[in-house]
Computed example of a mutant assay.
Amino acid sequence: MVEAVTTGRWLGLRPDLARLLACGDPEREHGELSRLDAMARETGLACASLAGRLRAETAWQMCFSMFLTSLSSQEQIRVCGELAVLVAQYLNGARPAVHVGDAGVAAGSDVNIGADRGSMAGGVVQVEGGVHIAFPSATVTGRR
């Protein structure tokens, strides 16, 4: 998990991991996402040093250990197998690092959002790297 968080693969992995930890229960999935995001934030901060990275790795191991001990032995075997496949897919690049929801768009290049005739357009962007925002050259005034 530390590798996923520190290489940018986390955003794609997190919803699948939350679904796995919630055992397919959509109500529990939201709570798992929140918990995983908190751990990912702590991991990102901790990885500034080798000692911090080792502590983060231990924290993730404890998290999964506690989760697995709450399952029956059959469920443990199943979940460990699913987790191993999931992590391997993301870290080896077999699954995309980008995850979008039902109304989302993933782009590997330019995205242009525009409006005309007094309308307004917007978008929500999550970016690794940089963003350039250009403002229109014409001045828009409000009308009543």
Score class of each variant (00 low, 15 high):
residue 119 S to T: 11
residue 125 V to Q: 03
residue 56 A to I: 01
residue 21 L to S: 04
residue 140 V to S: 02
residue 1 M to I: 04
residue 42 E to V: 01
residue 5 V to Y: 09
residue 39 M to F: 09
residue 130 G to R: 15
residue 57 E to S: 02
residue 106 A to C: 09
residue 75 E to C: 10
residue 64 F to W: 01
residue 53 R to N: 01
residue 28 R to W: 00
residue 109 S to D: 14
residue 35 R to A: 04
residue 143 R to Y: 12
residue 15 P to Y: 03
residue 87 V to N: 00
residue 2 V to E: 14
residue 22 A to E: 09
residue 29 E to G: 07
residue 126 Q to L: 03
residue 44 G to M: 14
residue 126 Q to G: 02
residue 113 I to G: 09
residue 49 S to Q: 08
residue 70 S to R: 08
residue 1 M to F: 04
residue 12 G to N: 05
residue 121 A to D: 08
residue 69 T to K: 15
residue 117 R to I: 02
residue 28 R to P: 00
residue 30 H to L: 09
residue 36 L to A: 03
residue 135 F to W: 09
residue 95 R to H: 05
residue 94 A to H: 09
residue 35 R to H: 02
residue 54 L to H: 10
residue 8 G to Y: 05
residue 139 T to V: 04
residue 25 D to L: 13
residue 15 P to L: 00
residue 106 A to R: 12
residue 30 H to Q: 10
residue 101 G to M: 05
residue 99 H to W: 10
residue 138 A to P: 12
residue 127 V to L: 15
residue 49 S to H: 10
residue 137 S to C: 06
residue 27 E to D: 15
residue 73 S to W: 07
residue 64 F to Q: 00
residue 11 L to W: 11
residue 74 Q to N: 11
residue 134 A to T: 10
residue 136 P to Q: 01
residue 93 G to W: 08
residue 29 E to F: 11
residue 101 G to Q: 05
residue 100 V to R: 10
residue 122 G to D: 12
residue 28 R to K: 05
residue 110 D to W: 11
residue 25 D to G: 11
residue 138 A to L: 14
residue 28 R to E: 05
residue 34 S to F: 05
residue 72 S to H: 08
residue 75 E to N: 13
residue 52 G to I: 08
residue 34 S to Q: 08
residue 1 M to W: 06
residue 8 G to Q: 02
residue 112 N to V: 15
residue 130 G to S: 15
residue 126 Q to D: 04
residue 92 N to G: 07
residue 98 V to Y: 03
residue 86 L to I: 01
residue 15 P to H: 01
residue 45 L to V: 06
residue 29 E to P: 11
residue 45 L to T: 11
residue 19 R to A: 04
residue 132 H to Y: 12
residue 126 Q to T: 04
residue 62 M to R: 09
residue 63 C to H: 06
residue 87 V to L: 00
residue 109 S to A: 14
residue 55 R to E: 15
residue 8 G to F: 05
residue 32 E to L: 01
residue 104 G to Q: 09
residue 39 M to P: 00
residue 17 L to F: 01
residue 132 H to D: 15
residue 5 V to A: 12
